[in-house]
């Protein structure tokens, strides 16, 4: 029998640390995390320092990122609730709830945001726009969340827990919920780039963020219509970088956290 405390220096690392290591071992994810952290710092610094085209682009980033974060979190929560409720309510409810969700993911849903922007008029508030953006992001999150939960509920260790006579409430609290955290985080993350994209597109068309609030999309749209390549460069680059980072991290989370690579496997 070999020594479990063998030559591997990480043998004591827990499954959470291992998941983190797997995430940062994925290069786009590591780069994405760095970029996101740098962007946050730069946007914060830009708000303080201000001024110039760079300062303006960073200030616009503050609006875009805040909106994306708000709408993305809302969409993630909604999607998780949707997927979780579908799994919890039994097979028939699951079919009834997930068929529309799956159908919605194939539609150009992002266009619902400019539609809402147009119908709400120029005096639209941020809150209703954020709600619409959250609704746009939710179906995709719901579909992924449902698949992950189904995969989790099929895993063998839940049978072992049952064989140990552990009551259902404790099984849910101690075994099911902790194991949903990482895969559902990966599912939830996908709402962020979706919300940012929807907002940028709508703002670019002049139908997104309310008037007076300038996001990256607003700045890009104005520069494109004016044919001003210089004014376009800053916000376009920052938006591209943010989207790339969000996707990279999301990809890494999917690879590192989801059922295809069960947590803690070597």
């Amino acid at each position: 029998m070999h020594e479990p405390a063998g030559t591997d220096p990480h043998w004591r690392d827990g499954p959470w640390q291992k998941a983190g290591q797997r995430l940062t071992a994925h290069r786009p994810a590591a780069a994405g995390l760095t970029v996101l952290a740098a962007l946050m710092l730069a946007v914060a610094a830009g708000l303080v320092a201000g001024g110039g085209p760079v300062g303006a682009a960073l200030a616009a980033g503050h609006q875009s990122l805040s909106f994306a974060l708000l709408a993305g979190l809302g969409g993630a929560a909604l999607g998780l609730l949707w997927g979780g409720a579908a799994v919890a309510l039994g097979e028939r409810a699951e079919r009834m709830m997930m068929t529309p969700a799956a159908a919605l993911t194939g539609l150009p849903l992002a266009l619902a945001l400019p539609l809402a922007g147009g119908l709400l008029g120029p005096e639209r508030g941020l809150a209703p726009m954020a709600v619409v953006a959250a609704l746009i992001a939710a179906p995709a999150v719901a579909v992924i969340a449902r698949d992950e939960l189904r995969a989790l509920l099929r895993r063998e260790f839940l049978s072992a827990v049952q064989a140990a006579g552990i009551p259902n409430g404790r099984r849910l609290r101690r075994h099911i919920l902790p194991n949903t955290v990482l895969p559902l985080a990966a599912a939830a993350w996908t709402a962020l780039p979706r919300a940012l994209m929807a907002e940028s597109l709508a703002s670019l068309l002049g139908l997104g963020l309310p008037e007076g609030v300038t996001g990256w999309g607003t700045a890009i749209g104005a520069a494109a219509r004016a044919g001003d390549a210089v004014a376009l460069a800053g916000p376009a680059l920052l938006l591209a970088l943010t989207l790339w980072a969000l996707h990279g991290v999301g990809d890494g989370m999917r690879l590192a956290f989801t059922a295809s690579t069960p947590g803690g496997r070597r």
Binding site: S200, I220, A224, L232, L243, W244
Partner: peptide
């Protein structure tokens, strides 16, 4: 594929419209 996520179609459209009319 690597740079793909950074260039959604609407962003490319804006860049092209501003630079190459």
């Amino acid at each position: 594929g690597w740079v793909g996520p950074a260039m959604p179609g609407f962003l490319l459209a804006a860049v092209f419209a501003a630079t190459l009319a």
